[in-house]
């Protein structure tokens, strides 16, 4: 589904990603871990199409299509979803109105009929249950005044509404207490299917107790320096990142 080859990206001339290679197939869950500043969020942002990042080398194919060539909105319409690390507050735009615009634009792109108000609301009700999100939040301005947990739940709720084939969760667990984490993970797990894939970017192993990955990759200094099964995450939890850093740093000397 997703094939990243030798991806290099920089921001304002500073290289952040220095040759990422990653293959993701439908039905898989990949966790990307790594110390702060290793490039995890950059990778997520580059995949979603954030403009500040410049791709200097390499390619990303999504279902055989050049992903980097698409605008952010077309990536979303093709089925890429980024759950933001810091969801943006947008005063004056209600969550319902925003989602209806988004859902219908995505449907239009996919050649589906727009949902009328009734159908949209019933879809919304159904998906709201997944993340136990309060109906009251829907009529409020998007993310405005939402608690940290509500914002993250709202991200997963949007993911449920848009039914992406590739979901990228950028530190969705950061700042969540255990109850919120459970709800969010539960939502993600219910959305999992043999047809879609998930990239979980996280700093903490804790999330992976709930969203169990098929593969774990360690990102350090802009490269994937180690890949393994979910046991790798446990090892990292126990030993920290220093041993990996040392391995990489001594190898490069």
């Amino acid at each position: 589904m997703l094939s990243i080859k030798n991806l290099h990206a920089s921001i304002e001339g500073t290289p952040i990603l220095k040759g990422i290679n990653l293959e993701i197939k439908a039905g898989e869950v990949h966790a990307i871990m790594g110390p702060n500043g290793s490039g995890k969020s950059t990778l997520a942002s580059v995949l979603a199409g954030r403009e500040e990042y410049e791709v200097t080398e390499g390619e990303v194919l999504f279902n055989g299509q050049d992903l980097l060539d698409l605008s952010p909105e077309d990536r979303a319409r093709e089925g890429v979803f980024l759950a933001f690390q810091y969801p943006v507050e947008i005063p004056g735009v209600s969550t319902t109105n925003f989602l209806r615009t988004a859902v219908n634009q995505v449907r239009e792109y996919r050649g589906q009929e727009a949902l009328d108000a009734v159908k949209f609301l019933s879809l919304m009700k159904e998906k709201m249950k997944l993340v136990e999100i309060d109906q009251k939040l829907m009529s409020r301005a998007l993310n405005e005044g939402f608690s940290g947990g509500e914002k993250k739940r709202n991200e997963i709720f949007q993911m449920a509404m848009l039914e992406p084939s590739l979901s990228i969760l950028d530190e969705t667990d950061s700042g969540l207490d255990i109850d919120a984490l459970r709800i969010v993970s539960n939502g993600v797990n219910q959305l999992k299917s043999p047809d879609n894939a998930t990239i979980v970017v996280t700093h903490y192993q804790r999330l992976l107790d709930y969203i169990v990955p098929d593969y774990v990759h360690v990102l350090y200094k802009g490269k994937i320096v180690k890949s393994g099964s979910k046991e790798l995450a446990l090892e990292l939890e126990e030993k920290g990142y220093d041993w990996i850093k040392e391995d990489v740093d001594s190898a490069s000397v």
């Binding site: 979603a48 199409g49 954030r50 403009e51 605008s71 952010p72 909105e73 990536r75 979303a76 319409r77 979803f81 980024l82 933001f84 969801p87 943006v88 947008i90 005063p91 004056g92 735009v93 925003f98 989602l99 615009t101 988004a102 859902v103 634009q105 995505v106 792109y109 301005a141 949007q158 848009l162």
Partner: peptide
């Protein structure tokens, strides 16, 4: 215009012009 908000809307599949219009009208 809040570029971060614009990107957020685009990342949900809303076209850039329409996203801009939504944000400006919200204001």
């Amino acid at each position: 215009l809040d570029e971060e908000a614009l990107f957020y809307l685009q990342a949900r599949g809303i076209g850039k012009d329409q996203a801009k219009g939504l944000l400006l009208y919200a204001f």
